[in-house]
């Protein structure tokens, strides 16, 4: 175990008779950025919900920060923070009130100060006293991520953190993620964007039809790709090519 922030073995989950996770295996190293890639409906959110104790698995084990999600959910909750796929902010409260609320729930000594600092860091100071319902999608997402940073959890889940963001805000979000990892926080993110995984992640896993079909560093994954043929121009495979090639291979079988 030692250095693993997350360790998942044989994880299974079905909704009614729809088998979403067949047997998922993965390991995330402490302090790293881990990207889980998968197309729509692959089960990324399902994995995140199980790891963040919102959903019970049908089989297999998942250990998060040394706590079993099934038997020690309280321990898991002490050490994680979740930014769900859909912005989890209270729309009727202002940005500042949202942050103060979470800081109070984390029992921090100075909730107002915490809120002020985060508002500044995420460029929300001007909008701080407006209701979150008046925020743009990007501002809401920034507030959402800011709320997840409160209390400095060891591990942060980001479920499709940049879906629906414009390119500029996206790059900003990437910066935050990198800063987090530099500060020692483990980041588990899901994404449909291959370039996002390529940009951010130390390790990438591809979830397809209920199992992890590839797992490794970007270079590892590149090796899985058939060597570039000598053509007019030699083309380095992008992660997109790799992704499509791997999925294609599976489906050919």
């Amino acid at each position: 175990m030692g250095n693993a922030a997350i360790s998942v073995k044989g994880l299974k989950k079905s909704y009614k008779d729809k088998e979403v996770l067949k047997s998922v295996e993965l390991e995330v190293e402490k302090g790293s950025i881990f990207a889980l890639l998968g197309s729509n409906g692959a089960g990324k959110t399902t994995i995140v919900r199980i790891l963040s104790t919102l959903l019970k698995q049908d089989g297999g084990t998942a250990i998060v920060n040394g706590f079993d999600v099934a038997s020690k959910p309280e321990g898991v909750r002490q050490s994680i923070s979740l930014t769900g796929q859909f912005a989890a902010v209270d729309e009727i409260l202002t940005g500042r009130e949202n942050l103060i609320m979470i800081a109070k729930l984390r029992h921090l000594a100075n909730p107002r100060q915490v809120a002020d600092d985060l508002l500044k860091r995420f460029g929300l100071t001007d909008a701080a006293d407006r209701r979150a319902s008046t925020y743009s999608g990007g501002m809401r997402r920034r507030l959402d991520i800011a709320m997840s940073l409160i209390g400095k959890p060891q591990l942060i889940f980001l479920d499709e953190p940049t879906t629906g963001l414009d390119p500029e805000v996206r790059i900003e979000a990437w910066k935050v993620v990198k800063e987090l990892a530099d500060g020692g926080t483990t980041v588990f993110l899901t994404t449909q964007y291959l370039d996002e995984a390529e940009q951010l992640a130390d390790r990438i896993a591809i979830l397809h039809e209920g199992i992890i079909i590839a797992n490794g560093t970007l270079d590892d994954l590149k090796k899985l790709f058939p060597p570039a043929k000598v053509e007019y121009v030699e083309k380095q495979p992008s992660l997109e090519d790799i992704f499509l090639a791997i999925i294609g291979k599976k489906e050919d079988k």
Binding site: R49, S52, T53, L54, E74, R77, Q78, I80, S81, L82, G84, Q85, F86, A87, A88, V89, D90, E91, I102, L105, R106, M147, S148
Partner: peptide, 12 residues
């Protein structure tokens, strides 16, 4: 809304 999921993933 998502906010309840946030609460439920917190130690409260």
């Amino acid at each position: 809304r998502g906010i309840i999921e946030r609460f439920h993933s917190m130690p409260i």
